[in-house]
Amino acid sequence: MLFFYNNDDNTRELLQPYIDSGIVDCVLIKGKGQQLNAYNDAIQKHKNECRWMAFIDMDEYLIPSQGGMLGETMQRLFEGRNDGAAGIGVNWAIFGTSGHKNRLPPPITEKLLNRAENNYWTNFHVKTICNPRLVANYISPHYPHYRLGAYSISDTGKRQWGWSFNDVQYNNLRINHYYCKSEEDYLKKISRGLGDRVGSYDMSRYKYYDKNDVHDELMLRYKSELSKRLKSF
């Protein structure tokens, strides 16, 4: 189930077929900097409905590195653990523009195939998949404040502290983050402002996130399935 928090009135119309089919629960949340309010609302409303909740943005694609289903990967990572591990911090894989200046037609995952090297500093950021019943509240877009004794692990099973993990490995999970998309898209990102607080991006970040050093076609494994599903709605 996808709990989609919508900060734009027009998005619901695009999602309506998925809402009608029961795949998406869409909530309109107005105002600037509402990201953490959305995260915490989802936890309070749905924590008893989900074994795991992943907190990701529209430009982030959570994928199992070795293929298969996400649930199967999570089961394997946490099987036999009884040490307080209540979530996993999944590192970003930052994708650049691949030289595109103008906005691209979807799906962008078939056109943006170059990313930053694993241990480039922007990839240190994580987003978290967690057991929502063991989360007190979200204090950052990247990492929750857990209840006493609970914590996140990294992709390699090590205890992870805070919003980043700098030994970046994509053995099990990763988040493809299409931060810039194209230069035109990034300019629109600036106009929208930050998601978690009142503030804005600027062009100084663009050069840090438009990284295209590694050619990466992992998302193409989903090309046919994605095309089939999009055509079904």
Rank of each mutant, 00 (worst) to 15 (best):
K30N: 09
G31N: 02
K32C: 12
K32Q: 14
G33C: 06
G33H: 04
Q35V: 11
Q35G: 12
L36V: 07
N37P: 03
N37C: 15
A38G: 05
N40W: 03
N40D: 07
D41W: 00
I43T: 02
I43Q: 02
H46T: 12
K47R: 11
K47Y: 15
M53D: 09
A54V: 15
F55I: 06
F55V: 03
F55S: 08
I56V: 14
I56P: 01
D57A: 09
M58G: 10
M58I: 10
D59K: 00
D59E: 07
Y61H: 09
Y61P: 03
Y61K: 15
L62I: 04
I63E: 15
I63N: 06
S65F: 01
S65G: 15
G67P: 02
G68N: 03
G68L: 12
L70N: 02
T73L: 11
M74D: 02
Q75E: 03
L77F: 08
L77K: 05
L77D: 12
F78D: 06
F78V: 14
F78Y: 03
R81E: 11
D83S: 09
G84I: 11
G84W: 09
A85Y: 13
A85W: 14
A85Q: 03
A85S: 08
A86Y: 01
I88P: 00
G89S: 12
G89F: 00
W92S: 01
A93Q: 14
A93L: 12
I94G: 00
I94T: 14
G96E: 05
T97C: 11
S98Q: 14
G99S: 07
K101L: 13
N102W: 12
L104G: 00
P105K: 14
P106H: 14
P107I: 05
I108N: 04
E110L: 13
E110S: 13
L113V: 10
A116G: 04
A116M: 04
E117W: 12
N118G: 02
T122R: 15
F124Q: 07
H125Q: 08
V126L: 04
K127D: 05
K127T: 08
T128R: 04
I129R: 00
C130A: 14
C130F: 05
C130L: 11
N131W: 03
N131L: 15
